[in-house]
Design a protein around this nucleic acid. Structure first.
Lengths: 339, 339
DNA sequence: GTGAAAGCGCTAACAA
DNA sequence: TTGTTAGCGCTTTCAC
């Protein structure tokens, strides 16, 4: 069964298509009873205006698109939820598309959105390189990047990862830990680059060297990698005083390996994550971590995007200060204590 | 800056719009060098075909829409991911929209999709009632419902919740538990209705009564409610032998309250969840639960939807058998043991 | 092999 | 207050 068009409605209501259009727009120049007739006809035919055709004539759609690397990652789904709530307040709907951490899929997602008459775009890109490739596509479309993966040519909102890592490391140091291991993250990750900088900065202040473990292999195997490396680490000799995990997800895998090896957290080794995903607050997990304040980040991103949609021309940059969330996986080092 | 149209490309390439259209479709009748010219012009102008206009002329868009109650719920985001992977294999993209557990938002989401030239729709509805209201909107559009909230008039895929609950309860019974409490779920929930049926069925077989706790209040407050009720439960006297939680999320809140009250799980009370969300497998959580096999469910949903898109007319119904996932939160009752 | 023209469903400018 | 007309960007006949 073909869907009803505005013409079908017009015919049934005995008016012209233009009148139907105006009636549905609830314009004042249309008589009440005409509107009534039109509404009735729409009802009868199950008429839904075709947004494609509408978009064609050049008005806004009140829809914004959002591209994320992976919806099943609580970091992104949490942010998406905040964004949708905020957008809804402003009368916008959000359409979500997954790039599955593939450059090609990311491009296709953006492409789809561009072709689909949206008013603006929010992108959590998978790498700074990938962002560079979007520019040509996006052109004049209002767009805000979220997170560290963006070029300097676009508007973006990000948390200060270096400061976050610095403060987290300071916290560990103040707890008396000396041998601290930065665990995970891939070499190509910009996020890692920023975090490790903060880490070494804090370590250097104490005249400490610090050590790190760089993740290798396919992005999709990272969790497995973390688990195996942690197993090795706990097996092969004295563990560090504390582990600063690249992300909460990594921390969780480390915790799993510790469990497996009978290493107690935090008694034997302190563990600190990054991101403050909802998992981290779970009973028994209760992971000490750094919050990127993703809800706030989402809100700001929507606000900036709407400003653009409403005419703002200048590029915007928002840098959020992260926040240490102290829970129970880090304790004072035995015999150490704050200096 | 306006986006380039097919005409701009045509002008730059020195051909007609029709030729551009054909060239981009890689049709054999177009000469190779013409295609080359066209491709180059597209490149230069950053041309992206407008899907709206394309959809207008009536061909498929290779996009399917999916409506979920809440992306930040791992149950749905997990399923969405499975669906996207499967759809991608078949050359389809998935656009995700959140209903935020509101009937109004759900309708708007569907509306949006209908208006947006998608080839098919996947819906995880928030209630059976809400589904009834979609019918008029959806009309002939290929559509598959996921989960228990659907009418009998549409195609759907769901897990057998009654059998799942029955088997889980049997498991608890076989472990020697007698006083089992079914905890949570709102009175209006169809899911609850089905699960509690299985629960009482198993209990009745043993000549046991069983007891239940019905959740009240706003959906968004449910977690808080679970936590508080569990606190009360553990405080006000002898806890049951075992708790069968309405969902994993509920179980997690119960676990939190137990922690708070010094009640040990599973030593003092066994705990069983439902859904097998990814949280449940976390170290230290390790929750025994029932899997709805949501990945499989997602795959089947996509398959059925594509069948419809490709012409199948009949309604389809798929019922999945759930699976008990034994982990560590349920143990034999002290002094009880399997009979 | 390519171009001209019609039409998809809708809205906006102009008439009546 | 309402109808007529043109045109949004694209695809698809039908000619050439």
């Amino acid at each position: 069964m073909k869907r009803a068009t505005i013409k079908d409605v017009a015919a049934l209501a005995g008016v012209s298509a233009a009148t139907v259009s105006r009636a549905l727009d609830d314009r004042p120049e249309i008589r009440g009873d005409t509107k009534e007739k039109v509404r009735e006809a729409c009802q009868r035919l199950g008429y839904v205006p075709n947004a494609a055709a509408r978009g064609l004539t050049g008005r806004g759609t009140n829809v914004i698109g959002m591209v994320v690397p992976d919806v099943s990652n609580p970091y992104f789904s949490g942010m998406a939820t905040a964004i949708e709530a905020r957008a809804a307040q402003e009368g916008y709907r959000v359409l979500l598309s997954n790039s599955m951490r593939s450059e090609e899929q990311e491009i296709r997602a953006i492409d789809q959105f561009l072709a689909r008459q949206i008013d603006g775009l929010l992108v959590a890109a998978i790498s700074p390189q990938s962002q560079a490739r979007h520019g040509a596509l996006i052109r004049g479309l209002p767009c805000v990047y979220i997170g560290v993966n963006h070029s300097e040519a676009c508007s973006y909102v990000m948390a200060d990862n270096t400061v976050g890592a610095y403060e987290a490391t300071r916290y560990l140091l103040d707890l008396g830990h000396r041998d601290i291991l930065f665990f995970g993250g891939r070499e190509t990750s910009r996020t890692r680059e920023l975090r490790i900088k903060g880490f070494y900065q804090a370590m250097a202040e104490e005249g400490l060297e610090g050590r790190e473990l760089i993740a290798v292999g396919d992005v999709r195997q990272l969790r497995q990698w973390s688990y195996e490396q942690a197993l090795d680490l706990f097996e092969s000799g004295p563990a560090p005083d504390a582990i600063f995990a690249f992300s909460d997800i990594t921390a969780l895998k480390i915790m799993e390996a510790a469990e497996e090896r009978g290493v107690r957290i935090p008694e034997d080794v302190s563990l600190l994550g990054y991101d403050n995903i909802s998992f981290a607050a779970l009973p028994r997990i209760d992971l000490t971590t750094v919050s990127q304040r993703k809800f706030r980040m989402g809100e700001i991103a929507v606000t900036r995007l709407l400003e653009q949609i409403r005419g703002r021309k200048e590029r915007t940059v928002d840098l959020l200060q992260p926040e240490l969330v102290v829970r129970s996986t880090c304790i004072k080092k035995e015999g150490g204590g704050p200096r």
